[in-house]
Design a binder for these strands. Structure first.
Length: 764
DNA sequence: GAGCACTGC
């Protein structure tokens, strides 16, 4: 850590320029620090520093850097790919890495940003023969987009058609075939696969990428893989000890004399099951957690390639980070070299307000200093508008990207040279006692701050301005709390039960969720009938629920709906409830959006309103079914969504979910019938399924949730916001500025005692 | 009369 000379220059420049402009400067930036951990290895590979490579990263990366490749010259292209591959930091260690994999069944690889680990290691494994005998190398990713883009890149590098030797599999999209040897997939999908094939028998190696992100799926997967690894190794050990031969990669050549007493072995009978190789890849610098978890597993480090980023801190703590961010944007704009600015904010509202203030401030600047454009990006923004952040700014203009966390990992924006990090993030928290989620603004972790600053060093040397003093940085948590410690566990527990894990409290989680959280979710599953009183998966309800890729309470609603003769309606409702909000309300067209929504509104509540939207979209496609082609339908749907202020992304997602779960319930033999106009039947079914989420009106017109006893408020986006019905059921319970319930439908309070007598006793 | 970061099956 050293103070660079330019810090003083920077301060000097600023003070001089202060006189010239009307903007008020309040900052003095100090402490210029090299991100030494991130870039420590760069000195050893100076020649590589200038050519970042698109294959180095699995993110949604829009690389405009293919000027040399305008002509569709296949050979030039493949030569270029080969050169790029060879220049990756990882290329020089292929042989050593494969040796490590052969020697160690479990290997932790710490790969820095830009090392090329995600694209190259699977190819190394393939070349080393780990796919012999029809075996597959599986690589998991936390995000769909990463699985797809990396698979495409690797297929290109291998010169094969996607879906053949190299493929990917994500929900709704399976681009693999019987010849697929390198398979990229989401971690959640591999968990689903494990339900059908508990020993993951088709895989010789599983690579868990981005393990440091610690998503719920990754954490559960790690626990499961550890178990599967033990079982498959044990099988080998037991058999080799009685004289069986093994091939070099551990496959058993002979398998007679299998011990029939061991149930696991029974399932392995008749198959050659080599031990499962595990590779855990993490970008976090601390491999200790993973290594310790896997019994002191071997950890190796692979150098990365990223440009240096200078870190600046404020001298004093800032009281208003939005104000500080705006001032910093203008400081950079007026004093720093060309290059785009990426600002991390917590949500849509902040982004919109900062955007407006930037425009206002620009008007006060001299004409020739106004060349700055803004581009917001957050997940609920329609995709056409999201794409604007990737478009280069007009010539001579500086682009300011105002982003939520989406720009931290999910999307990579080229051209960013400056990052402004206020050091806060909006995070979801979960209170297992109340069963309530809340969204609150909290400080980032050190790892998050590092990730954010790294966004400035992708195309060249960058700068990151942290809007807090360095002393504050030292106080931050090292890494973000794993998701599994801050979410409802009902789904996780149901999945584990279905995978044969009986003792949830004893399950070997890398980090155990709290006992209270496990207890609450187990109780919920018992009340829903998924688990018996002695915590076994119930038959058939529990098994059916585990099979459906939905929240357990939605799965239960579907099963009940077949008895209430309203499964057709419930399939739609559940699909629509499983996606982000369907209605889109742009600020400037509020009233139009409301009028449009009223056309779908049902006086009985939000569930029927959502069904109306879905059916209207169905009717539309039915009317125009003569216009054939999937693309044509997409186009018709998009236009209709726009006219009706509906998010086309959410609706498309809901339609995908609908067709997926419809297939599942058909296979389960449930009867799909409609209650027609008898919506009472549908609402009775809602009451039977969502009895845990019922609320009663209080004399003061607020509501009290019956299960938790909390005072709750109907969310203003609900169609029932103005209707004060006596008894309602709801889907979500979220605390923001108040305790809100969302997606609400009117029911009759007596239905609860009738339909959920195990929970509600009638008061005489 | 609010305003919800991001993923995933």
């Amino acid at each position: 850590m050293k103070i660079r000379g330019s810090a003083a220059e920077y301060l000097g420049n600023k003070n001089e320029q202060k006189q010239g402009f009307k903007l008020k400067y309040v900052f003095v930036w100090v402490k210029v620090k090299r991100l030494s951990l991130f870039f420590s290895c760069r000195a050893k590979m100076p020649s590589m520093a200038q050519t970042p490579n698109p294959s180095a990263n699995g993110n949604l990366s829009f690389n405009h850097n293919n000027n040399n490749n305008n002509k569709p010259n296949f050979f030039a292209r493949s030569r270029k790919i080969l050169e790029q591959r060879k220049s990756l930091p990882i290329a020089s260690v292929e042989r050593r890495l494969i040796e490590e994999v052969r020697k160690h069944d479990i290997l932790i690889i710490v790969g820095e940003t830009g090392s090329g680990k995600t694209t190259q290691i699977p190819q190394f494994l393939f070349n080393a023969g780990f796919c012999r005998g029809g075996k597959t190398v599986g690589i998991t990713q936390p995000r769909r987009v990463a699985a797809v883009t990396v698979a495409k890149r690797v297929a290109e590098e291998c010169g094969v058609e996607l879906g053949q030797k190299v493929g990917y599999s994500i929900r709704f999209e399976d681009v693999t075939s019987s010849s697929t040897s390198i398979k990229y997939m989401t971690d959640g999908l591999l968990l689903r696969e494990a339900l059908l094939d508990p020993y993951l028998s088709r895989y010789s190696v599983i690579v868990v990428d981005e393990a440091h992100e610690r998503t719920v799926h990754t954490d559960v997967l790690l626990g499961l893989l550890k178990k599967v690894h033990n079982v498959r190794s044990k099988y080998i050990r037991d058999h080799t000890s009685v004289g069986h031969k093994r091939t070099s990669d551990g496959a058993i050549l002979e398998k007679e004399n299998a011990d029939p007493c061991i149930s696991v072995l029974k399932q392995c009978e008749g198959r050659k099951l080599p031990p499962l190789k595990l590779i855990i890849m993490s970008a976090s610098l601390d491999a200790r957690v993973f290594s310790e978890y896997f019994g002191g597993a071997r950890a190796v480090h692979i150098q990365g390639r990223q440009f240096p980023v200078d870190i600046f801190y404020t001298v004093n703590p800032q009281t208003d980070y939005l104000d500080s961010a705006i001032i910093t944007i203008f400081q950079i704009h007026l004093e720093e070299a060309p290059g785009d600015i990426l600002v991390f904010l917590t949500g849509q509202e902040e982004i919109e307000s900062v955007e407006k203030q930037i425009q206002d401030n620009l008007r006060q600047l001299p004409e020739d200093s106004r060349k700055m454009s803004t581009a917001p990006i957050f997940s609920s923004l329609p995709s056409e508008q999201q794409m604007r952040v990737f478009a280069p700014a007009p010539a001579g203009f500086r682009k300011v990207i105002l982003a939520t966390n989406i720009a931290e990992t999910s999307v990579t924006i080229p051209g960013v040279k400056y990052v402004i990090d206020p050091g806060v993030v909006k995070a979801r928290c979960y209170d297992p006692i109340k069963g309530m989620e809340s969204l609150i603004v909290v400080p980032t972790s050190k790892a998050q701050a590092l990730q954010r600053s790294g966004r400035a060093g992708r195309d060249g040397r960058g700068k990151c301005f942290r809007l807090y003093p360095e002393s504050e940085f030292e106080k931050l948590e090292d890494s973000t709390k794993p998701e599994i410690k801050r979410c409802n566990l009902s789904n996780v527990i149901l999945q584990l039960k279905a995978l044969g894990v009986d003792d949830i409290f004893g399950f070997d989680f890398i980090e155990k969720p709290s006992r209270a959280a496990i207890k609450r979710s187990v109780e919920e599953l018992i009340l829903l009938g998924a688990l018996t009183d002695d915590c076994k998966l119930s038959d058939p309800v529990g098994h059916q629920m585990a099979r459906l890729p939905l929240d357990p309470i939605y799965s239960k609603a579907l099963i009940l709906a077949s008895q209430f003769n309203c499964l057709e309606e419930m399939l739609i409702a559940v699909a629509m409830l499983s996606v982000e909000s369907i209605f889109y309300e742009p600020r400037e067209k509020k009233n139009e959006a409301r009028t449009a929504k009223n056309c779908f509104a049902s006086p009985e509540g939000d569930h029927l309103t959502l069904i109306n939207v879905y059916r209207a979209s169905n009717d539309l496609l039915e009317k125009r079914k003569s216009e054939v082609g999937k693309d044509k339908h997409e186009k018709i749907l998009r236009k209709w969504c726009k006219e009706n202020f509906i998010s086309s992304r959410s609706l498309r997602h809901a339609r995908d979910i609908h067709s997926q779960i419809q297939q599942h319930v058909e296979q389960m033999g449930l009867c799909i019938s409609s209650c027609g106009d008898d919506t009472l039947q549908f609402r009775r079914c809602l009451a039977a399924a969502f009895f845990l989420n019922a609320a009663l009106k209080q004399p003061n017109k607020t509501y009290r949730a019956l299960a938790s006893g909390e005072v709750v408020h109907i969310h203003p986006t609900s169609v029932l916001f103005h209707t004060k019905a006596d008894c309602i059921i709801f889907n979500e319970f979220v605390k923001t500025s108040k305790e809100y319930i969302r997606n609400v439908t009117i029911i009759d309070g007596f239905w609860l005692t009738e339909l959920a007598p195990h929970y509600y006793a009638r008061q005489e």
